[in-house]
Simulated assay, not measured.
Amino acid sequence: MPGPDSRIYVAGHTGLAGSAICRRLEAVGYRNLILRTHADLDLTDERAVERFFAAERPSHVILAAAKVGGIAANAAFPTEFLSVNLRIAANVIDSAWRHGAAKLLYLASSCIYPRLTPQPIREEALLSGALEPTNEAYAIAKIAGLKLCQAYRRQHGFDAIVAMPTNLYGPHDRFDAESSHVLPALLRRFHEAKEAGAPDVTVWGSGTPRRDFLHADDLATACLAMLRGYSDAMPVNIGSGSDISIRELAELIADIVGYRGAIHFDPSRPDGTPEKRLDITRITALDWYPAIDLRRGIEQTYRWYRENCARETATV
């Protein structure tokens, strides 16, 4: 278990998951966080990563850095989603082991599960069926990272563990049109429609897929629970334990934003996986439970968006 003086490197600390993890670590008294922006350290550069670990020698590593995006971005840039995430995982995991890190926590993703699998999804479902084509490149890279963690554990005794977060949202999310996921994309779209007085908003897909959404701050507490009390090759699902349809999500966001126009769905656009809800038995066994309900979490995220992003995204 990391002590308050442990040197903890959080890779990807400016992103949605990484920033939430940093906030939580600092809130409970961890004082020696090691942080680098992409401008300071390119994690796809093997030699740069090696030099960083040789100089800093963190005792614990949380690998939250990744190239991420929604359906449109994954469809447009499969090469980058596969190659960038493969290199990040390979470079960080190897250097962490070589330079004596006591533990590494790798953030995979629930999108690596098969497209069609019994709900709620148990960790054993991994690689039991075909992937969802709309995010296949990203999923393959994340599966490779997970398997690297298991290989280093088996071959070298490296205490590399894997968290499998569901769809995340919260402060520091991406709200741009090209790379945002569904929840922040809808927040932006309904906000801008309200500001413009638009009579209707069109949402991609049929609205029928169901998704499990978790606030990034809840993910952060789960990650800390894993750092403190988990050591096993089996990945651990981290989700809310419930789900909501995209139609219901759109209606909820419209209500929170205060948008009163019509909502249309475009079934010619891809839906992605029909249903995705995680079994969270393993993480709750560590005495962790989600604390932020979806409405309250979206309200908080919308306040953050208005204060930090609304003017900027309106001009994009």
Rank of each mutant, 00 (worst) to 15 (best):
G3T: 15
P4A: 09
V10K: 05
G15Q: 12
G15K: 13
A20K: 11
N32A: 11
R36V: 03
T37H: 07
R47V: 05
F53Y: 14
I62Y: 06
L63V: 11
K67A: 11
A73M: 01
N74Y: 03
A75D: 11
F81R: 00
I88C: 05
A89G: 10
A96V: 09
W97H: 15
A102S: 15
L104E: 00
A108S: 15
Q119R: 09
A125G: 05
A130D: 15
E136A: 14
A141Y: 01
Y152P: 06
R153P: 03
A160P: 11
V162D: 00
L168P: 09
D173W: 04
D173Y: 06
R174E: 07
E178A: 14
R188Q: 03
E192W: 06
A193F: 04
V201L: 06
V203E: 04
T208N: 13
R210V: 15
L224P: 01
Y230E: 04
N237S: 08
S240E: 06
L249S: 00
I253D: 00
D255E: 08
R260Q: 13
D266M: 14
P267K: 13
P270M: 06
E275Y: 11
K276P: 00
P290K: 03
R296K: 10
G297H: 01
E299I: 05
E299S: 05
Q300I: 08
R303E: 12
E307I: 06
R311F: 08
